[in-house]
Design a protein around this nucleic acid. Sequence first.
DNA 1: CCCCGGTGGGTTGTACGCAAACTAGGGTGC
DNA 2: GCACCCTAGTTTGCGTACAACCCACCGGGG
Lengths: 219, 219
Amino acid sequence: MTTTAGASRASERAQAALREAILGGELAPGAHLGEVELAERLGVSRTPVREALARLAAEGLVEAHAHRGARVVSFSPEDLDGIFDVRLALEPRATGRAAARATAADLDALDDLAARMLAVGTRGPAQDLDALVGLNREFHARLLDVAAAPALSAALGNVVHAPVVLRTFHTYDPASLARSLAHHAEIVAALRAGDADWASSVMRSHLGNARAVMVGSRS
Amino acid sequence: MTTTAGASRASERAQAALREAILGGELAPGAHLGEVELAERLGVSRTPVREALARLAAEGLVEAHAHRGARVVSFSPEDLDGIFDVRLALEPRATGRAAARATAADLDALDDLAARMLAVGTRGPAQDLDALVGLNREFHARLLDVAAAPALSAALGNVVHAPVVLRTFHTYDPASLARSLAHHAEIVAALRAGDADWASSVMRSHLGNARAVMVGSRS
DNA sequence: CCCCGGTGGGTTGTACGCAAACTAGGGTGC
DNA sequence: GCACCCTAGTTTGCGTACAACCCACCGGGG
């Protein structure tokens, strides 16, 4: 579901806003989330905030301890490793499926994303690692969408969301970053060739590269 | 009172009750879930029901269409197949991890579960397929717990819950059912031997057997 | 000096009420 | 006779008020 528009319901806007704030690092892991504070901040009452919080909790982005309120989840290095285990088990499979299903429009969109990532990711005056974060998320989301495997997407959904996983382009060293960007383009090339094996292999490499960066960084 | 102790919050009780009702088949897939009806049925106001519904939606058990209310999700054969893909990708891995981590207490508990499943699952006067459903869920949950892989559990959590997946012992033919029960015992044996490869192989067989039953049954 | 019970402030949990949105049914115009 | 619009009913979405609960601080007792 690519519907980013509407959000006629305030609870959806609240949920989206909170997710962006958490994923964007605006709300640090472990930060206490008061309902009234969030309600004022978002210009709605506590009720939709509450609902959004409940959904995010079920989604694994925040954890709610009894009457003590909600906190942004934080991840240990072991958790991070586990997350990559899951991604390695599922994403290459999804990428392979995508190879057989991608339409021309899909390929063009992915190509565009990969190109833009390369533009803002390459060292120089135009480098913008924060923009890269968003593009990267969009790329992987679109890829998952193309795979058309709802169960697979659902399984990954509550795992990849991990804030740390998606915000670590800042910790990439130049060589690893260059590899990562190249992988995106190569994945699209493999999809264009319709080669599922090639595509999934690149994705495995992509994740291996990311895992190496992150277990070494130990932020 | 099927839902354990705790649950000081009415919303948790509501969520647990709804989940049981859905997983237990009391609420059929596609059934319309009215908030007032559920509120009266559970003896609480609409607010906790609403919250419970929101969490179950994020969990993937129900789907809420705009202002049209919530419905119990229903699964197509393709969805089912996708679910088994995910399970096959993740559960054998978890089982392998469990082989290296299971304590004596874990093994005894799993053994007990396997034995009880065999008791209520074997053809005869004591056969109780409904009890089998609960035991099976407990067995797999415990196994996942022993694996101590939070991300893996989270990924599976929102997928396995699928009502159809957990309620299909009724559709097993005698031979498949016997195999399934034997697999549980064999898994414990493999764990006791500390043989991760053996354990994960049995789990793969277990899932393969289940998949074969379900794609053929088309309930 | 340390430990324990009491109390106050603040937060969450639940209930209720109102307004908007969707659905369905009947009536009218073409 | 058919299609469209309008209206009534029901349900959801949100706001607000009250009650329960937890935590921190403070005073008294051992």
